[in-house]
Amino acid sequence: MIYWRRKYISMLLLVCLTLACTRHGGKPPIQIAVGGQTQFIYLPLTLADRLGYFKDEGLEVTISDLRGGSEALAAMMGGSVDMVAGFYEHTIRAQAQGKRLVMVALFDRYPGLVLMVGKKHFDHVRTINDLVGKPVGVTAPGSSTDQLVKYLLRQNGLDPHSIPVVTAGISTMLAALEQDRVWAGVTVDPLASKLERDGIARPLYDTRTEKGTHDIFGGPWPAGGVYTTAEFIQQNPDTVQSVVNAAVRVLRYIQEHPAEEIAAVMPESFWAADRDRYVESLRANLSLYSPDGIMPESGPPNVLKSLSLVDGKIAEANVDLKDTYDNRFVLNAR
């Protein structure tokens, strides 16, 4: 009797597992981490999820919203997530440390990062030199916001550690600037536009446009997108292709729809209680997004150049840029 009961339970479990695999097209559930989900630079990830594009690919995707890109990367390297919506630069940093990360779809043609000065210091801060020794807010140490500060310092012949950075995530940056806990902060839209519009802060260095990016980095600087480990790609090529299919599809949606329609799909909580201003800011940022998800050949060398200026280990490493991104999945996207 006990034997047949165990046999029945085993068969039932097998049926349940089979049904689960069938429901998801044989693909395992996917965990994707992002450092600041409400930011425009990562809008394609949430938009694809809201439009049901992941489900159309037979994927069950869970998005983990963390404070910054470095925390999202740490979550993946620690094994708690499978992929990251983050900045391309992390793939270069990883290779210099003997690890291989690969960007499989590009969201953003440029970074969209803005170093903004708090209103109490408008008259005192004209360049990065004036912030030496003063607290500056970044999303997290080691994040792309932190690296922008260090790059600007090195570019101006200063010690990249001469500005004390303070952790101030997207949800706390506004308060940090208003309460003068930081002299300046690095953020992105929609928060950057709100800070400027409300007179709380104003841009000192701005990469929300192609011109601004070229002025600061001297050329193209591809930024946000989806990356993962080379091992995950090797073990789950069909899953990666499905994620990229959804990414390319949502980038096409962005190209074909006005800001008003895109905003209507996003969670209301992302609007920060002001839909009209959210739409206005989004409209001004639509040129940020890649039309096709392809990493341009001219971008990675310039990113490597800027990273090497700040980090001697990267400068000394023999980084093979061909191993930091893979356009095959985008080119094969339906």
Rank of each mutant, 00 (worst) to 15 (best):
residue 165 V to I: 15
residue 128 I to K: 04
residue 127 T to G: 06
residue 129 N to A: 12
residue 156 N to Q: 07
residue 148 L to H: 02
residue 148 L to P: 05
residue 133 G to Y: 02
residue 146 D to W: 04
residue 130 D to M: 04
residue 126 R to V: 11
residue 145 T to D: 14
residue 147 Q to Y: 13
residue 160 P to I: 00
residue 146 D to N: 10
residue 146 D to M: 02
residue 135 P to S: 07
residue 145 T to I: 07
residue 143 S to R: 03
residue 151 Y to H: 14
residue 142 G to I: 06
residue 150 K to E: 14
residue 151 Y to A: 00
residue 137 G to A: 14
residue 153 L to G: 06
residue 148 L to F: 01
residue 145 T to Q: 10
residue 142 G to C: 08
residue 130 D to S: 06
residue 117 V to A: 14
residue 152 L to E: 09
residue 130 D to P: 08
residue 128 I to E: 08
residue 125 V to M: 10
residue 132 V to G: 02
residue 136 V to D: 09
residue 148 L to N: 07
residue 152 L to W: 07
residue 159 D to G: 09
residue 144 S to A: 15
residue 125 V to L: 13
residue 146 D to L: 01
residue 161 H to V: 00
residue 139 T to C: 05
residue 118 G to H: 12
residue 159 D to P: 10
residue 161 H to C: 01
residue 133 G to I: 09
residue 132 V to F: 01
residue 160 P to E: 04
residue 128 I to T: 08
residue 121 H to G: 01
residue 135 P to D: 03
residue 143 S to F: 02
residue 127 T to D: 11
residue 130 D to T: 03
residue 129 N to D: 11
residue 166 V to G: 12
residue 141 P to N: 09
residue 166 V to E: 14
residue 164 P to M: 02
residue 140 A to T: 14
residue 145 T to S: 15
residue 118 G to L: 13
residue 158 L to A: 06
residue 152 L to H: 08
residue 152 L to S: 09
residue 164 P to H: 00
residue 123 D to A: 15
residue 162 S to C: 05
residue 143 S to N: 03
residue 163 I to G: 09
residue 133 G to E: 08
residue 161 H to R: 09
residue 138 V to Y: 06
residue 150 K to L: 01
residue 157 G to L: 11
residue 130 D to H: 07
residue 127 T to M: 05
residue 156 N to C: 01
residue 124 H to R: 12
residue 164 P to Y: 00
residue 158 L to N: 07
residue 143 S to Y: 03
residue 139 T to R: 12
residue 161 H to W: 07
residue 140 A to H: 11
residue 154 R to C: 02
residue 163 I to E: 07
residue 157 G to D: 10
residue 131 L to P: 04
residue 120 K to Q: 15
residue 125 V to H: 08
residue 166 V to A: 10
residue 140 A to N: 11
residue 155 Q to W: 02
residue 139 T to N: 12
residue 123 D to Y: 03
residue 137 G to I: 08
residue 138 V to E: 03
residue 148 L to G: 03
residue 121 H to S: 08
residue 130 D to G: 05
residue 153 L to Q: 05
residue 122 F to V: 11
residue 123 D to R: 13
residue 117 V to Q: 14
residue 142 G to K: 07
residue 131 L to Y: 03
residue 156 N to S: 04
residue 159 D to S: 11
residue 160 P to D: 02
residue 129 N to I: 02
residue 119 K to G: 04
residue 138 V to C: 06
residue 165 V to H: 06
residue 157 G to N: 09
residue 123 D to M: 05
residue 159 D to L: 06
residue 160 P to G: 00
residue 144 S to V: 05
residue 129 N to V: 05
residue 155 Q to L: 13
residue 123 D to F: 00
residue 165 V to S: 10
residue 116 M to E: 15
residue 151 Y to W: 11
residue 116 M to Q: 15
residue 137 G to S: 11
residue 117 V to I: 15
residue 141 P to S: 07
residue 141 P to R: 10
residue 139 T to V: 03
residue 140 A to M: 10
residue 118 G to T: 12
residue 134 K to W: 00
residue 165 V to K: 03
residue 137 G to C: 08
residue 154 R to S: 14
residue 150 K to Y: 02
residue 128 I to F: 04
residue 124 H to C: 05
residue 117 V to F: 14
residue 115 L to W: 12
residue 156 N to G: 01
residue 129 N to L: 04
residue 141 P to L: 07
residue 147 Q to M: 12
residue 127 T to Q: 02
residue 162 S to W: 00
residue 117 V to Y: 13
